[in-house]
Simulated assay, not measured.
Amino acid sequence: MRFATFSSEGHMFYGAVAEGGMIALSDQFPEWPTLREVIAEGGLDRLDAAAQTKDVTHPIGTFVYEIPIPQPEKIICVGVNFPDRNAEYKDGQDAPKFMSLFPRFPRSFVGHDVPLTRPTVSEQLDYEGEVVVVIGKGGRHIKEEDALDHIAALSICNEGTVRDWVRHAKFNVTQGKNFDGSGAIGPWIVPFKDPNQILDIKLETRVNGEVRQSDRSSRMIFNHAAEIAYISTFTTLVPGDMIITGTPTGAGARFDPPVFLKPGDVVEVEVEGVGILRNSVVDE
């Protein structure tokens, strides 16, 4: 079963994804205002059971996808996490000793099938397809061998980046990564039940049908367990936190000349076993 957050007629819901639309479940569980609270209470199985007895409440065309966890405490992104991506930096390192991290704000993301926004101050909006890990069980100083037990679900991200703003300052990328509506997460979350769901899965990004990025999670420099363990050494992970785990080579900035996104483009990020996140592009 897949679960999503969506809006319809000015109201926000969460529910199960079904053939033909959505099965709204949030009204049935008022003690859990969002999927964040569902995850914190280990309630995804209860949602699954409830969905089995209900029909579609919101047919396709009557709702808009939102980001799956609408109010996460933290969204932490891992940079330069595939070998070919690391090689692009030509700094002589075979692999970094420690992972590169930066935060993103929820407002910088939209849901599935909602256009990405190219800001007025730049024409360098780029795509980055990534796997998203949603934390289910929080903790601090989580051991790597225990880390996968802290995952509640998986999702997909297009970690849209405004390239020239990434280099505005000497040591940080935060501003280039946080323009309103420049990235997307979704369409839904898939409950995490088995390590095989992430150990060796295919990740592919397409722009207007052309494959731009393609790699497998088994080639990540820092795997998902290592990411959770490292991040939890300096901050307490809580249910609903999202870790955006790294993108392969092939972003538009690395073409010669660079090929950035423009209005009318359609970006699809596909993650094996999770689904396809699709967004068009519009100008602010």
Rank of each mutant, 00 (worst) to 15 (best):
V133S: 08
Q71I: 13
K97G: 14
D94N: 14
G79Q: 10
G92D: 13
I135A: 00
R118T: 04
I142W: 05
T120M: 05
G129M: 08
K143C: 12
Q71V: 14
P72L: 07
V132Y: 11
H141I: 11
N86P: 15
F105N: 12
R85H: 15
I76W: 04
P106Y: 02
E73Y: 10
E73W: 07
G136E: 13
I142R: 08
E66W: 00
T117E: 01
K90Y: 15
G92Q: 07
P70Q: 11
D84G: 15
K137H: 11
D84M: 13
P68T: 05
E123L: 02
P68W: 11
V110L: 00
V78G: 03
P115T: 05
F109E: 04
G129N: 04
R118G: 05
D84I: 09
V80L: 09
F109H: 08
K137V: 09
P106H: 02
G138P: 11
D84E: 14
G129E: 03
R118K: 10
G136Y: 14
G138Y: 08
S122Y: 01
G111V: 14
F102H: 12
R107D: 14
G61H: 00
H141Y: 07
R85Y: 13
E73L: 09
G129T: 01
K90I: 15
N86G: 12
D113K: 02
T120R: 12
F82E: 05
I135W: 01
I135S: 02
R118Q: 06
